[in-house]
Design a protein around this nucleic acid. Sequence first.
DNA 1: ACTTTCGGGACCGCCCGTTAAT
DNA 2: ATTAACGGGCGGTCCCGAAAGT
Lengths: 196, 196, 196, 196
Amino acid sequence: MTRDTRARMIETTARLLHQRGFYGTSLNDILAESGAPRGSLYYHFPGGKEELVLVAMLEGITEVTRFLEGVFAEAPGPDEAVRAYVQGAAQDMRDSGFVYGCPVAPIVLDSPPKSSALAEACREAIEEWQRILAEGLGSGGIERRRAESLATVIVSAVEGALLLARARRDVAPLDTVAEELALMVRSALPHSTSAV
Amino acid sequence: MTRDTRARMIETTARLLHQRGFYGTSLNDILAESGAPRGSLYYHFPGGKEELVLVAMLEGITEVTRFLEGVFAEAPGPDEAVRAYVQGAAQDMRDSGFVYGCPVAPIVLDSPPKSSALAEACREAIEEWQRILAEGLGSGGIERRRAESLATVIVSAVEGALLLARARRDVAPLDTVAEELALMVRSALPHSTSAV
Amino acid sequence: MTRDTRARMIETTARLLHQRGFYGTSLNDILAESGAPRGSLYYHFPGGKEELVLVAMLEGITEVTRFLEGVFAEAPGPDEAVRAYVQGAAQDMRDSGFVYGCPVAPIVLDSPPKSSALAEACREAIEEWQRILAEGLGSGGIERRRAESLATVIVSAVEGALLLARARRDVAPLDTVAEELALMVRSALPHSTSAV
Amino acid sequence: MTRDTRARMIETTARLLHQRGFYGTSLNDILAESGAPRGSLYYHFPGGKEELVLVAMLEGITEVTRFLEGVFAEAPGPDEAVRAYVQGAAQDMRDSGFVYGCPVAPIVLDSPPKSSALAEACREAIEEWQRILAEGLGSGGIERRRAESLATVIVSAVEGALLLARARRDVAPLDTVAEELALMVRSALPHSTSAV
DNA sequence: ACTTTCGGGACCGCCCGTTAAT
DNA sequence: ATTAACGGGCGGTCCCGAAAGT
């Protein structure tokens, strides 16, 4: 029961963070939706809201990281890996009714107070994703510096496309970005003939 | 004095929205920082917080739109226009101490309630920016469909790069995105030899 | 236009007082419903809310007083006069959708602050109605002391029956009270055989 | 301590409702006078003001109901029971410094919004009192229909006399009504000689 | 290990009244 | 006779966190 309560609180928190950000997510809502009593929160998360949010965000980050590692492990080439990454994000969006996007974006834009821990975690998550992408592109033969630039563009474009998709309630921007990023990566590959 | 009070409230609201989003921006903060009394708020904005936020956001949107139109009018080519656009965003970020990003992003991610007006305005702003970009790219000779795809990627990448820049408190992601997007546009131009 | 605005404000105030009492009636509501601008209120009623309420209440009191005088002037006997009085109140209730009751009751029960003027007016209105009733009954031959007692009972029963009628949204209590009070008065008449 | 805080809030609420009605009774006043912190209110009464008011009113209603049942159980006859009932009301008025009247009257006259629960409770309380009175009179030998009519008149007259007493800050109207109602009931009793 | 109850401050919106300018 | 623009305090609700009590 203990684990259930704790896990349910984390899940609910993650969802509410996506929907309404840090300040828009109230502990009361979390408690009400997860069915946990008030006291339990401070038993499981003595650090209060910030700790709970951090844990929920870290779980989301880990999922994204795992997924990103997976696509590079499984895709036939870097361009296909990137396409799969973006399409995975699109799927999450669609499946969740345009709620689930990037787990760090809402925190970054709300910039909660006393948030060195939260802000740090956001920064590190983004760096990790960039690193994985850069390595994946590098393995495909793209020169290191270029790969890092492309990784930055890819992370940026996906973050932005998630935002556009949510605003339109339509995954079309993610589809478009998936194609263009794949093309961009292909163009950067060493033996590419750059056919568009 | 009238204009001053009203204008000051809008300015303060815009800044706080960038810093902490819709839910993190309290009317008390706005009133305290703009030095306006509570009665004035509901005189100038009978619709309350939502109306004030809408007005502040619309002003920010207009600024971006104007700037975007300007870069295409003045730059020698579409690739340079895109570079100037992203560099303009980078400059705003730097000048504001990593506070000012996109005026619609915080609203989209907070998805305020009863907000058809706010959500609609966000959607329209993004479409407008995409339209301006697509037209600008089209004028440079890029085929219409491709221009629209690139416009989506550009808007997405800028949105995302603003988020990355904020997370890192460093405009490097915007610089990188500026270069890569310019390159991407140049590659799409008809007489391009696509040299990378 | 002046009279119109002023008169409309008074009317609206009277209605809102009946509906929600002194504290439940806001100047904003009055202004909104009467279509008058804010400044007009303090031009016509420098004393603010309390003065406006006093005026509105006094108009209502005068109407009741006039009606009460009328029934005694026109009815064939005191018992019929009392019946007509109560039925008049019932008609007001019904016609107004169970909004209009006694003009002083909401003020008495809210006991507004600094209200010597309002409270005094309520007290005087009640005394006036009792006086008219006592005189009317006395003219019918009922001994003076008894007439005064009956007047008190009649005013009380009507006040209470208005409250019951409103609570039930049904004028039945007023009909019942009309019959019983008429009977009570007839029983008190000198030549009455007290037949029921 | 739990019971104390909750009970104190209810008591204070009841008193303030009598004094100033629903809209004139602020939660701030209640909290200040009962010494309870804000959080306790929404813990004990999640429904907010309306729930607190409902509970306070129901307690007052129960007291009246108990008292009414008591007078019929103890008085030698229906007329004496009615006299005792009215005198009980008079005593409450006097003892409370002309604050305590009927617990439902202030709510009925303020007709709070969204208040089906409150309005319903008022209606039911009045019906219950009428029922008790009608039964008590019926037990004394008064025919059922007449007893019901008299019950309506009695409840009405007491409600009204409480209002008159409060307006005058004098229980005289209640004394008068006590005598006249007792007389009225006696006249309606089967073996009455109807001596006045 | 977990819950109940407290604590008080912040939220946004509305309140009534005033002022300076017509 | 009316208006625009304050002025600031109070409305009910909800906030996050802690304490007391199992």
